[in-house]
């Protein structure tokens, strides 16, 4: 079945992480229900809202990085395009920061 739909390992890892995140959030919610609170984001959010905003922001950070990698290469006169792992780390920092302080 996995061969038939041409699944690749990175995509599988990506979705496994998402599912684990959702499952983790569900368990957390059952253990200690979330409350609305106001952080640096312009509106009061619950934990789930912050996860959504964090993931959406992370996607945008990675996309922007991929889109601008050409410029960055030229600008800093690098020999090859900077690794996508840089933006991945930045986006994960953003995700954790949003979850904690958002």
């Amino acid at each position: 079945m996995f061969e038939w739909m041409a699944w690749t390992t990175p995509v599988a890892i990506f979705f496994t992480c998402i599912v684990l995140m959702l499952a983790g959030m569900t368990v957390w919610e059952l253990k200690s229900p979330t409350t609305m609170r106001k952080g640096f984001l312009p509106m009061a959010t619950t934990r789930g809202d912050r996860l959504f905003i964090g993931l959406l922001g992370a996607a945008y950070i990675n996309l922007a990085f991929v889109g601008m990698a050409g410029w960055i290469t030229e600008w800093l006169s690098l020999e090859q395009e900077p690794s996508i792992w840089i933006s991945f780390v930045v986006s994960m920092v953003w995700l954790v920061w949003t979850l904690r302080k958002g």
């Binding site: 739909m5 041409a6 699944w7 690749t8 990175p10 995509v11 990506f14 979705f15 996508i84």
Partner: peptide
């Protein structure tokens, strides 16, 4: 999502392109 990271030339020939 899965197709967006591959170059699918034909059902048998596909390359992961990140």
């Amino acid at each position: 999502v899965n197709y967006s990271v591959q170059d699918i030339i034909s059902p048998e020939r596909r390359v992961f392109v990140g």
